[in-house]
Design a protein around this nucleic acid. Structure first.
Length: 246
DNA sequence: CGTCTTTGACCGGCGC
DNA sequence: GCGCCGGTCAAAGACG
């Protein structure tokens, strides 16, 4: 580990498309929730002896059928050889699963910062093995990511800039429409070959990379682009099916 | 020593 | 009702 990612060439190609398609999985909507986690643990460790305190979380999610928790999600494609790109934050891998549509496994990362529940999903595109799709979920609570461990994110690394060519942040707003079915398959295709109706940053060369990178690191991730849509959701959770599109 | 990765198992939701 | 899938945790191991 140690951030091997830095230094590799990365090109972000995002595809926003499909406003309705959720980046991740359709059923993961509830994703954010830690629902299963708690349950899982409970049964394994506490065996139901009550935890009293954590119940609130369980209830929250279980309370009703709100399966869909809308957490700000932002996905973008990166052309890189390494799956995990260092964006300036410290991530801890907490799982890996094989994806049906892709021969490549999907890795799950969580921000190690205390209080920050931001999650990141990284998977390699089945169509283009050179493309890595990174999906961020949630907002970082800490302003300055600063990479303590690597001493610098790839953004800071001159090598990184030198290597990457273009960065396209993929901004995803999941409209949660009523689509069901092969969302997953479409997802991948859409991401890659769709045009970005909402946000398309087509930059090339260092400039773009720098931009994206800067913004990622400076804002702690994708504040600029994400903020807008994220805020809507985060700030006004009441609106469930609003469409946050640009 | 501390931190992170890896792997297996489990759960919840959804579809059929 | 059953099976499939995705997502998460936990423990052990590895590494710096």
């Amino acid at each position: 580990m140690s951030s091997p990612a830095a230094g590799e060439s990365s090109e972000v190609v995002n595809n926003p498309t499909t406003p309705n398609s959720s980046i991740s999985s359709s059923s993961n909507e509830g994703g954010n929730s830690k629902k299963s986690s708690k349950d899982g643990k409970n049964r394994l460790k506490e065996e139901g002896e009550d935890g009293g305190e954590e119940e609130e979380e369980l209830k929250a999610k279980k309370t009703k059928g709100q399966k869909r928790q809308r957490e700000p999600r932002f996905a973008f494609m990166t052309k890189s050889e390494v799956d995990h790109l260092d964006d300036g934050y410290r991530w801890r891998k907490y799982g890996q699963k094989a994806v049906k549509n892709s021969p490549y496994p999907r890795s799950y990362y969580r921000c190690t910062s205390a209080g920050c529940g931001v999650k990141k999903r990284v998977e390699r595109s089945s169509d283009d093995t050179s493309i890595v799709v990174t999906t961020y979920e949630g907002q970082h609570t800490h302003p300055s990511p600063i990479t303590p461990r690597s001493g610098g994110s790839l953004l800071s690394d001159p090598a990184f800039r030198d290597h990457h060519q273009s960065v396209l942040p993929l901004h995803h707003h999941y409209n949660q429409q009523h689509h069901h079915q092969q969302q997953q398959q479409q997802l991948q295709n859409a991401y890659m070959y769709n045009s970005a109706p909402s946000l398309n940053i087509t930059t090339t060369t260092t400039t773009s990379a720098t931009s994206a990178a800067s913004f990622l690191r400076d804002n702690g991730l994708l504040q600029d682009m994400v903020t807008c849509q994220m805020m809507g959701k985060v700030v006004e959770p009441k609106e469930e099916e609003e469409e946050q599109r640009f």
